[in-house]
Design a binder for these strands. Structure first.
Length: 431
RNA sequence: GGAAGGGUGGCCGAGUGGUCGAUGGCGACAGUCUUGAAAACUGUUAACCCCUUACGGGGUUCGAGGGUUCGAAUCCCUCCCCUUCCGCCA
């Protein structure tokens, strides 16, 4: 949870940030509930103190004195029970509100309403030009039997796909290349659970808020339904399970930073995107991603250096593939509740005649680590919450769009990027 | 899925209704001794919440949730997880 002392000290700041991040919460109301909660805790504790004191003496009492004490405690027990009920009711309300509180973005973050407020800060490479009429990725993929969406849609519904033949090979090649490059840099490769229970979606900050984007496992519609409801959810990114790896742990300072490369399938419902990006492999329900997850000490400068590092790792892959891209500073309205600094990488996609988002790099301060209770002991032996960062290193098949479209020849054959050839049986071209 | 046994503090492990937040051991930390270290001895050693400038005080927590009781680690119910054996299966 957010450090509530900060909220109590400067409620106006939090209210302002809620506005900037498009979060609806009345901070004043929350603080009122917070006060009320404290009040009830005090009442309950006073009763508990009394009960504990008397209970300690009861065994030493005898006769009428003992009978009276027990009688008194019965009465006290009743009021205590009522107090506890009142407390648990307000705890629920308090907790629901508390989970909605945002983290405070760094001063450099642009203020904006939505993705239109993002600010381009750098371009690498020039958008590709063609001496012929280029084809879009779906045309090329189908031409070479690399994808089949019709049959996939029949089987699994809209936004589904089969990768077939060279399409499957190329997809795995780019993922393998990326994983190997991170391993060479000393990263620890994780194959995490693809399902996780609610507390970890809450801990990483996806819940509450993103429930409609997340698949639930099981779909028990009635009590006698034979379908089991397992109360698990499919992860939309390995960040959920990899960040949760150290939940409730206290790490040694000497063990920080931790650098984990989570490789997983990612599942997304894409609710509310009907009709948006329906063509091709841009917006789909499942994909594979190599995600960098970093835990570090609570030092903003060190964290920002790591931010540069993980963004650079992603840029290194794009540069090795010779793909033009740009970096955007993501604005407050597009960055999410817990993030305090965020940049997107958009890669040039010829068929869209624009840059399309392929990577997302985030610094969350202690937001996730507070929720997940991931701590370390600092040099004074004091417990601190870690800071966390994450960044896409590669996500496929989306990245196949710029690769295939950029590497196409006039006759529709596709050159295989140099660095991927060793993962494609040494072949240089898909013809 | 069936059968049995378990889940206690950083770890091991004792504890079956009342001065138990919990004996003991290990580990860790501090001190004594030592040129230094080890050994030995002595002491300290949980988290979270509330009140407090602080000193300090109080509360909660023995897998989770409910119940019985004046009082629960201990009794009852439900659930989760782990171990072993059997069955099934990639």
């Amino acid at each position: 949870m957010i450090d509530l002392d900060l909220v109590r000290q400067d409620p106006a700041l939090f209210q302002k940030v809620c506005g900037q991040k498009n979060i609806t919460i009345d901070i004043k109301k929350f603080l009122k509930v917070d006060e009320e909660r404290k009040e009830i805790i005090k009442e309950v504790q006073e009763m508990q103190t009394k009960r504990n004191a008397v209970s300690k003496e009861v065994p030493t009492m005898k006769g009428a004195e003992k009978a009276k004490a027990i009688e008194d405690m019965k009465v006290l027990g009743e009021s205590l029970k009522k107090g506890e009920e009142k407390l648990s009711a307000i705890e629920i309300e308090w907790n629901e509100m508390q989970l909605l509180l945002p983290s405070i973005p760094l001063p450099s973050v642009p203020v904006g309403k939505d993705d239109k407020g993002n600010v381009e800060c750098r371009r690498e490479g020039e958008p590709t030009t063609f001496a012929f009429e280029p084809k879009d990725h779906m045309t090329l993929l189908k031409m070479h039997g690399m994808v089949d969406t019709e049959r996939a849609v029949k089987i699994a519904g809209a936004r589904s796909y089969f990768l077939t033949g060279k399409g499957a090979e190329l997809h795995l090649a780019i993922l393998r290349y990326t994983m190997d490059s991170l391993i060479k840099k000393g990263w620890n490769l994780f194959l995490p659970p693809l399902m996780a229970s609610r507390p970890y979606f809450t801990g990483t900050g996806f819940f509450p808020g993103s429930e409609e984007q997340i698949y639930a496992v099981g779909n028990k519609t009635s009590a006698d339904s034979p379908v089991q409801d397992d109360e698990l959810n499919l992860i939309g990114t390995s960040e959920v399970s990899v960040m949760s790896f150290h939940a409730d742990e206290t790490l040694a300072l000497s063990d920080l930073p931790r650098k984990y490369a989570g490789y997983s399938t990612c599942f997304r419902r894409e609710a509310g995107t009907y009709g948006k990006d329906t063509h091709g492999l841009y917006r789909i329900h499942q994909f594979e991603k190599v995600e960098q997850v970093v835990l570090c000490e609570a030092d903003q400068n060190k964290a920002l250096a790591l931010f540069e590092e993980i963004r650079q790792n992603a840029e290194d892959v794009l540069k090795a593939l010779n793909l033009p891209y740009r970096i955007l500073d993501v604005c407050t309205g597009d960055m999410g509740r817990g993030k305090i600094f965020m940049q997107d990488i958009e890669t040039w996609m010829p068929s869209r005649n624009s840059y399309g988002e392929t990577h997302s790099c985030s610094y969350l301060g202690d937001f996730q680590c507070r929720r997940l209770s991931i701590k370390y002991k600092d040099s004074d032996g004091k417990k601190q919450f870690c800071h966390s960062l994450n960044n896409t290193c590669i996500a496929s098949p989306r990245i196949l769009i710029p690769i295939i479209e950029t590497y196409q020849n006039k006759d529709g054959s596709i050159r295989i990027p140099d660095v991927l050839q060793e993962y494609m049986g040494g072949n240089k071209v898909i013809a």
